[in-house]
Nucleic acid binder design. Structure first.
Lengths: 142, 142
DNA sequence: TTTGAACCTCCAGTGGCTAGAGCATGTATC
DNA sequence: GATACATGCTCTAGCCACTGGAGGTTCAAA
């Protein structure tokens, strides 16, 4: 039987995060001691490991919910899990392409900066005037 | 004189976002009509363009606050603005490296999936067992 | 004058946690 | 059995950067 603290250590998760996962129904309600403290079994350890690993690979909690559901039904076709992973892969690739454009732009800004006063700082100049940019980089965030 | 809606259109910003920027002090309080509606000048248009462009390049609102401040003081050395941009570049490069690792892992998962039942789905298997991973991908998010 | 699009304020919600207050429990040592 | 104190509990609020909606007002054109 694991305390929440041990489970946290074993999975590299914060205690609060585990309780949060329980709250949103991603982790089941565990057993409790007479005093009301949570005690976990290996089943829950496996589930949390799955969740954490999926998060590390960038899956959203909603996607993880689906994956867990599929994992719980070994008879269902694999296609769905595969689809979720493929979507995630697409998203990662899209983000990478975007970051690459940003990287190029930032590098150009930084390289062209001569180190004088801000009056003629290339960095600020580029930020001021979008037309100096080589790429579009429309969307924000992501 | 621009209405908030026009300013929004011209900069590709949502109206609510402009009001939000005002609320957190990133945009100044503009003039108002007798009826209380906001009216903007070109000064504010420039400022919002600067903010939006910086956001597109991934700068945080705090970083943008610093950049705007520097931009308002042309006599100050350029070093600081350059530093902020360099930090941002570093961050982008770190994120790209991380995403590249994720991409490889996801691709491997997806490629190895044979399309049977979830019982022997490679995707789920890899998520279950971290030791099957080639890379570390410790940190979450970013 | 009337219409109706655009404006206003205020509040709540998003994702995925994270931090802290204030108290209860569990375990090791004496 | 008493004590110390690390760990646990619940509850609430905050982070970032917005976004959406309710419910009401103003502006400009017809």
């Amino acid at each position: 039987m694991l305390t929440i603290g041990n489970l946290a250590k074993m999975t590299g998760t914060k205690v609060q995060t585990i309780r949060y996962y329980e709250q949103i129904g991603l982790m089941p309600e565990p057993g409790r001691t007479e005093g009301g403290q949570r005690r976990y079994t290996d089943t829950e350890l496996d589930r949390l490991s799955f969740i954490r690993h999926s998060r590390q690979l960038g899956f959203s909690l909603d996607a993880i919910r689906e994956l867990l559901d599929l994992s719980d039904h070994p008879d269902r076709p694999c296609r769905e899990a595969d689809g979720i992973a493929r979507r995630q892969l697409k998203q990662v690739e899209r983000r990478m392409a975007r970051l690459e454009a940003l990287r190029a732009e930032l590098q150009r800004m930084v390289h062209e900066c001569s180190g004088g006063s801000t009056a003629d700082c290339r960095v600020l100049e580029v930020l001021r005037d979008h037309s100096e940019c080589l790429t579009d980089h429309e969307e924000i965030g992501a």
